[in-house]
Design a protein around this nucleic acid. Sequence first.
DNA 1: CATTAAATGTTATAATATAACATATGTAAT
DNA 2: ATTACATATGTTATATTATAACATTTAATG
Lengths: 137, 137
Amino acid sequence: MRYKQLSDKKENLTKHQEIVLELLEKANEPLKAYSILFNLSEHGVKAPLQVYRALDKLIELGKVHKIESKNSFVACINSNCKANSNTAFTICEQCDEVLEIHDKKIFKKLGDLANQGKSKLNKYNLELYITCKNCLK
Amino acid sequence: MRYKQLSDKKENLTKHQEIVLELLEKANEPLKAYSILFNLSEHGVKAPLQVYRALDKLIELGKVHKIESKNSFVACINSNCKANSNTAFTICEQCDEVLEIHDKKIFKKLGDLANQGKSKLNKYNLELYITCKNCLK
DNA sequence: CATTAAATGTTATAATATAACATATGTAAT
DNA sequence: ATTACATATGTTATATTATAACATTTAATG
C-alpha cells in the first residue's frame, strides 16, 4: 500500500489498528484477542480476523507485543522499542501485573546465552514469572 | 495417590505419561499435542485430554517443557532440570532445531533482569530465535 | 484515472485446550 | 481385607485461540 511514511506515528494506522492500539494502551494490561473483539464490537469490529489482522500489523510495527504464555497482547511502553518483535516481560504471579523490561543491554545479554557466540540471535521472547515487590510485602 | 516415591524415575510414571515421554524423547524435537495424539492412537490414546493430562504431569515433574510460542512440547535434556517448569531454549528460524540452554547461572542472570532485585523471580520462559551455526554457513 | 498493494468484510473451519462427570486404580490406614 | 482417599482414566461435549479463502474496498502513486 505504501501509506504516507510519516515515520511510525499513529496517523499511519488504519482505523482498526488505531482502536485496537488505543484499547490496549487504555487497558494497561495484556488483553486476549477475543476480549478485544468483545470490547470493540460497537466500533464495527465484528469478526476475530479483524482483531488478529490489526494485532499482526501492530506487532510488526513493534507497537504491541504478544505474551506467548498467556495468549495475550499488550501495548509496548518502551518508546524506543524497535519494530523487531522482541519481548521481555515480568509477570507477577500474584497480582498479574505485567511490565515490560527496560534494559538497553538485554539483546547482548541474551545473545551471550544463545551459545557462546556461535549462533546469531535474531529475536527473543522472555517471560519472567515473579512475585512483584508490592505482593512480597 | 502417593505412588512409591523412588525419587522421580520413569518407573513412577503412569502408562500414558510414559509413552508420551518416550515419544518426545525419540522425536528429539518439539511436538504438538495433537501430533502426539495422532502418533499414539494405536497405543490406546484416543482423546486430547489423555495427552494434555500426561503432558501436564510431565511438565510438573520437569521432564517436559512447553515451547510457548510454538504450542509445542519437548523432552527435557537437562538431566539436572528441577521440577520447576523453567524453560530456556534456542530455536533456529531456518532449520527449526530447538536446543535447551545449559547455563548454571541462568536463574541468577534472569533474576537480575527482573528488576534490580526488588521482586522475586519464581519461574522463567526464555525463547531465543536464532540462526544456528550450521545454518549460518 | 489506471494500477497496485494493502486493508476489509464475511463465512467457514482449523487448531489448541478444558469442563464435567462417571469409573477405575494404587496407596495407606484401620 | 476393607475402607477411605487421592489420583488417573475414559468419554462426550464444548470452549478458546487462530487461520483459510475469497470477494470487495480503499489509499497511494505513476
